[in-house]
Each structure stands twice: as C-alpha cells, then as structure tokens.
C-alpha cells in the first residue's frame, strides 16, 4: 500500500477531501442505478399480482379489451 496507515489513506496529503467526496458521490450514484430498477421491478410484479387476484375473485370487470391490445408488436 502507498499509505502507512488508514489515517494517511483518509487524509491523502490534504487531497483526501476531494478524492473521498468523489468516491462517495460516485458510489452512491452507482448503487442507486442498481437499486432503482430492482425496486421498480418488484413494484411491477406486486401490481400485476394484485390485478390477477382481483380478477380471480371477480371484482375486476370489463377490462378484457385492455388485456387484448397488449399483444406483441
């Protein structure tokens, strides 16, 4: 390692503030780019599951037309 201890790694001869803030912000953005689609995916599945359950119990009616126009291109 280029640094003798963790303290020095954090300070980086006075450049630590710049380097670590760049690392912190970048890592946060990158993690956000993974979490956001995963959440969206889970939410979509929940929504579909709810629609399916409603249909099964017969509470949802008159939606058959919407269902048929979602076929593939």
């Amino acid at each position: 390692m280029q640094f003798d201890n963790v303290q020095q790694l954090l300070v980086m001869d006075g450049h630590g503030v710049y380097v670590w803030s760049a690392v912190f912000v970048s890592v946060c953005v990158l993690i956000g780019l993974i979490i956001r689609p995963l959440r969206q995916h889970r939410r979509a599945i929940k929504k579909i599951a709810r629609e399916l359950n409603l249909k099964k119990t017969g509470k949802l009616t008159g939606n058959s037309q919407e269902a048929s126009d979602a076929s593939n291109t």
């Binding site: 956001r36 689609p37 969206q40 599945i45 579909i48 919407e66 979602a70």
Partner: peptide, 28 residues
Amino acid sequence: ALILFTRAEILERERRASWVRELVAEKQ
C-alpha cells in the same frame, strides 16, 4: 444496469400480456 432497467420497464409496459401474467402467477 441496462438489463435491470429494461427488465423493469418490460414488466411495466407488458403487464397485460399473457406471458407476464403467467410468470407472475407462477411466482405466486
């Protein structure tokens, strides 16, 4: 990230397609 975002988008856009419904029903 591209695959994850696109998969989420597919589920949202195609939620009325029969294959998506089957997939969710299977998961349930």
